[in-house]
Design a protein around this nucleic acid. Structure first.
Lengths: 139, 139
DNA sequence: CTGCATCCGACAGGATACTG
DNA sequence: CAGTATCCTGTCGGATGCAG
């Protein structure tokens, strides 16, 4: 009964930080990153600091609510920094932290992949729908 | 009136495939990828084919509904393939396509980043909350 | 075993209006 | 300009039951 103990312990340790486990912190972080607005905000900031309204313009279709919410969450997690200039009117700049910049590369890679392979995906989609229609007729 | 035409055309072409634009196909694809279950499924398949119930076990907390839904969407988009073996009981294997494998690298990179930097994020979170409490007291 | 159909609650998130 | 507050709707997604 002791033969697998060591292996089991190792397995458990490995699994402890495995993103697949529910409620695990890494999983939560992955959740946070798997957010539409997060990708877009990080990508928008990847080539330099931007002001709030600047971001709002750049990220078409984002509501002030979601933008603020996303920015706050990312600030909280140390992905970006928020700098307020108390002029009139107020001016707020957002900028990626070093941590954020290390992430930005990965996310823009995904974004670039999407732009590169969109055609392939469309082709696959049409193929799938063609087969589906065919199956419906045969059935 | 013609001085900026060429530049404008270029700009429009660039913008046409910009993931920031709403309703743009690339944006839609980015949406699809920014799904919690998508990351997990792709990651789970990144080291070989798996059966349905195998995936269900590996991805803790996924309901059959969401798993099937995610698998169908990814199959439709040509990210993975579905192979039915008409035995009794039925056996279904899922496997990444070449397209899917090219994506898997990127997504697991993000997952690895999450596992690597979770501590930093936690530290940032605590720092943020400390400042927040301080501000609340000062106010 | 591998799903699909249905119901239903929770909550994400858009629109709008207002404030420092 | 940079948000906050409120309302309200859609839809994501869990639970359950059933079928091939």
């Amino acid at each position: 009964m002791a033969t697998t103990t060591a292996a089991q312990r190792r397995e458990e340790a490995r699994v402890a930080y495995d993103a697949f486990l529910r409620g695990c912190p890494t999983n939560q972080l992955l959740d946070r990153l798997s957010d539409k607005w997060v990708s877009l905000v990080v990508a928008a900031l990847s080539d330099g600091p931007r002001r709030y309204s600047d971001l709002r313009r750049k990220i078409a279709g984002v509501s002030p609510k979601m933008l603020t919410q996303t920015l706050r969450a990312l600030e909280r997690d140390g992905i970006l920094s928020r700098a307020v200039t108390p002029s009139v009117p107020v001016r707020v700049d957002y900028e990626l932290t070093p941590l954020g910049r290390s992430l930005a590369g990965l996310l823009t890679a995904v974004k670039d992949w999407a732009e590169e392979h969109i055609e392939e995906v469309h082709a696959a989609r049409e193929r799938y729908e063609a087969l589906e229609a065919q199956a419906a007729q045969a059935g």
